[in-house]
Design a protein around this nucleic acid. Structure first.
Lengths: 327, 327
DNA sequence: ATGGGCGCACAACCGATCGTTGTGGCGCGC
DNA sequence: GCGCGCCACAACGATCGGTTGTGCGCCCAT
């Protein structure tokens, strides 16, 4: 089906005359007549009743009209999504179910009518994201580089928010009944976090976490998919993993898994946003303001070394207590 | 833009290979390649990066994909809306802002995912609606015929619900400050209800209303549009009109108009639904059930003679009081 | 190292489609 | 009754979309 025919149909229905529709669309009346006829042939339904004064919608045409409008509007949005220079805000996240995406979704819902596209650059290498931001392929990327000095001069890294981690365990795990846990209580338990590249951002994070609390984290090895991880957790009495508190990952699983917050200090992963220094997308400012307005984490928070250099992004922590940083 | 190209793009993005997409769509790989190329040329954006193993979405492609899906789904719904035999439930209302449409909208919102099309048969003659129902052009029509004996044997009339009337007056009208009014209090005030054909369903209604309460209702004369009516009401100290309590008509008006319920008895217009006796639309049953579940009107209710023959449709009135019919 | 397999792109050909001009039929109103 | 406005049909040229045939690049297995 040709969307041009749909546009023609909508215009003709609005004007009540093929003639006027043709004039407004810059084609001949005969062309409009044929477009409508072709549409009717394709749908096997008569959309207009022809009268000597113009055309009138049949019941089929009336039922079809709002759908046609919706499709035309959808095409407009689709085209606008890739139109260079004035396209919708486009933000790269690590996964559609990550805490990043959840925060992004909340922002989008708080701003009705905002055009926002979420993409996932399928690359392990953060330099790909940096290049995409620098080239303007995306307007911002939820990636971090551990060493900010390696950033090109036209890309800036901004602390977005800190994502607290939960321990995820199966029902037979000895920690399964705990309401909360402290990092020292994790000592001696195997924590399996597959699919982490050794020298990557997450690799460094888990390395530092292991050192700081003397934990046993298996971050190496390939990731066979979430299902494999879930199955292993559900059956195992001695394996746990760490997940972002706000992640939607692993949710639809039928396994009887438990999420247990880790507090005192809260283990938090600092999420950053890569943004271009020059010509940022006009809608980006609003999202950055939204990020700054997010509440901080309550209580003591542990962060990896690179996040301790600069102050936390959020204006105020949840509780009245002062935030304390822990080595 | 060809929606077939969008479908092809979506399939190719899902499969990651033009080859597979081509196989599944029943065309050659070259055709798919050309469709994608044409799409990219039209959008002036590269949607895929070609690799020796297949194709991968670019950021533009990722941003475009959900929009393409949405358009394809919209086209599906549009086609389904006019597909004979299995199209969506289609109901005729007198106007998109009428109480009928409001009730219909509420029903649609209470049933997420229900496909429903609302049409308006542009005809004063109820026989057109009867014929449309009989022919299957619409599945139900919110019209009434005052004499059910004139209905063809294959069309049935069902009481839908009773729509209470409000008096609508301008700020300078002597009744403007009343919280509620009884029908006798309307006596002597001019009530202007333009655009009612003399022997029509509404004409009979206002005739009976005039007789029952000795009112002064001008129901004759042409209707110059809602704006004219609103302007007249806003300025006039002695003209009022009657509107359905749930109508969305006249709402966006900047005039300082007042809606005043008429009670004791409540003036109600009985709305009926014309439905085919044979082969009703499968989704119609749910809507009829919904109509029966609507609460009835509280207190005493006045109805025109033809609605008093059969019992009211709703199961129970709002209050505990018994419904009383008034002559 | 090399050849076969796989996947995508380009070229040539052909039928269908689209838009144009020209024309005819049909009601309405002067 | 005739002209006018509107839509439909016909014929023609241009474009498009599909197919077959072919070439290129990469991966992998022989």
């Amino acid at each position: 089906m040709d969307t041009e025919a749909l546009r023609t149909f909508v215009r003709a229905a609005e004007r009540g005359q093929l003639r006027r529709a043709a004039d407004e669309l810059g084609v001949t009346q005969q062309a409009v007549s044929r477009r409508i006829a072709a549409l009717e042939r394709e749908l096997e339904a008569r959309l207009f009743t022809r009268t000597p004064r113009g055309v009138e919608l049949t019941p089929d045409g009336q039922a079809f009209l709002p759908h046609a409008r919706s499709v035309v509007a959808g095409v407009e949005r689709a085209v606008a999504a890739v139109r260079r220079g004035s396209r919708a805000l486009r933000i790269d996240v690590l996964g559609l179910r990550s805490a990043q995406a959840v925060v992004l979704h909340a922002y989008w819902r708080s701003r009705p009518g905002t055009d926002l596209d979420v993409v996932t650059l399928r690359a392990d290498d953060p330099r790909v994201a940096v290049a995409a931001v620098a080239a303007g392929d995306v307007d911002a990327s939820f990636r971090s580089v551990t060493d900010p000095d390696t950033l090109p001069p036209d890309v800036r890294m901004i602390r977005a928010f800190d994502s607290p981690l939960h321990l995820l365990v199966g029902p037979r795990h000895p920690l399964a009944t705990a309401r909360t846990l402290t990092p020292p209580q994790l000592r001696g338990h195997r924590i399996w976090v597959p699919g982490i590249a050794p020298r990557s951002e997450w690799g460094d994070f888990y390395d530092q976490l292991t050192d700081a609390f003397d934990l046993r984290i298996d971050a190496a090895g390939p990731h066979f998919g979430d299902d494999v991880l879930l199955d292993a957790l559900a059956d195992s009495p001695d394996t746990a993993t760490l997940v972002g508190a706000r992640d939607r990952y692993l949710w639809p699983a039928p396994h009887d898994l438990r999420r247990i917050p880790v507090v005192d200090p809260t283990l938090a992963y600092p999420l950053s946003l890569l943004v271009p220094r020059a010509h940022p997308h006009p809608a980006l400012r609003g999202f950055l303001t939204h990020l700054r307005s997010l509440p901080g984490l309550p209580g003591a928070v542990w962060l990896p070394s690179w996040a301790r250099r600069q102050p936390p992004p959020a204006s105020r922590p949840h509780t009245g207590k002062d935030r304390r940083h822990v080595r």
